[in-house]
């Protein structure tokens, strides 16, 4: 701040600070409002609040209506992330050795490929084989969707690793597997965990892909709320769930930035 402060005359400086404050207000306002309105002591959304109460959180805990879809989201994200880590670890070891740009581009491609288009293709593929709406089809699609996020972080961890350690393990007679298990894996574990959390959140919050290929039986929370909102509006139980999820995501991203400085992986 000091170095930049000299050249800014007072009014320009005030303008700059005002703009920064406004920009941060813009970034945080929707999430903040999301959390605040869930405390409303009224039967529907209103602003300013009619009063502060916890009754919608109590209702949320007791009402099993939306819990099913939240659990379904949590489960889907868990399976997809776990499967993706299992695919990503060996693939990233291969990529780290070979540095094959083509394969790397292919594996990262879903990141840049519009989800709507891919979802449409998947819908038709699953339809052709009579698999539409099965849970396993959702898991596989989500696995591919989160893989680029995990792959990027794991690859970067491998590239930051001191390769001498690996060489040392080999020269001391360790085999491939034990070198991986005892040397490489512990070093890249933080990266794998960061990647897994990234992937989990991406899968948990997805609307587009799930919207196309899920059936009413295994609908996730975001898709259920999206469709309901279009037809019957929002109710307070949904707002309570949204407040809780927003808050948890805020805490996760705070921990991730404080302890893993994970913004550098983007």
């Amino acid at each position: 701040m000091n170095a930049g402060g000299k050249w800014l005359s007072g009014s320009v400086k005030a303008l700059y600070h005002g703009a920064v404050w406004l920009a941060f207000l813009f970034v945080t306002a929707p999430g903040l409002l999301m959390i605040i309105v869930a405390f409303n002591d009224a039967d529907y959304f209103s602003f300013p609040l009619k009063g502060v109460s916890l009754r919608w959180f109590v209702e949320m805990a007791e009402n099993g209506n939306y819990r099913g879809s939240v659990v379904s989201s949590l489960r889907l994200a868990l399976y997809a992330t776990a499967l993706s880590v299992l695919l990503t670890l060996p693939a990233s070891l291969w990529l780290h050795r070979r540095a094959n740009r083509f394969v790397e581009t292919v594996l990262l491609a879903p990141l840049f490929f519009p989800l709507v288009i891919w979802s449409l293709g998947l819908l038709q593929l699953y339809g052709m084989f009579g698999l539409s709406g099965r849970f396993v089809t959702l898991v596989l699609a989500h696995t591919v969707m989160v893989t680029p996020f995990i792959l990027r972080v794991v690859l970067q961890s491998l590239r930051e690793m001191n390769s001498r350690l690996e060489e040392a393990a080999y020269s001391l007679g360790a085999g491939k597997w034990s070198t991986f298990r005892r040397v490489i894996f512990p070093i890249i574990l933080p990266g794998v965990m960061v990647g897994a959390v990234f992937g989990y959140l991406i899968s948990f919050t997805d609307v587009t892909l799930t919207m196309f290929i899920s059936s009413s039986g295994n609908t996730t929370f975001p898709v259920r709320v999206y469709s309901e909102q279009r037809s019957e509006g929002l109710n307070m139980v949904v707002l309570a769930w949204s407040a809780v999820i927003t808050f948890v995501i805020f805490i996760i991203s705070l921990i991730g930035e404080k302890f893993a400085r994970w913004s550098r992986y983007f």
Binding site: F24, V27, T28, A29, P30, G31, L33, M34, V37, F45, F47, L201, I202, F204, T205, D206, V207, T208, P222, V225, Y226, Q229, L234, S242, I245, T246, I249, F250, I252, S253, L254, G256, E257, K258, S263
Partner: peptide
């Protein structure tokens, strides 16, 4: 500040747009 910027990213399209819907 980074956390404030990252939170909307991880909240996903639904929660973000519900926030704007309410605003």
């Amino acid at each position: 500040l980074i956390t404030l910027v990252l939170t909307p990213l991880f909240s996903g399209a639904l929660l973000q747009s519900l926030g704007w819907y309410l605003l």
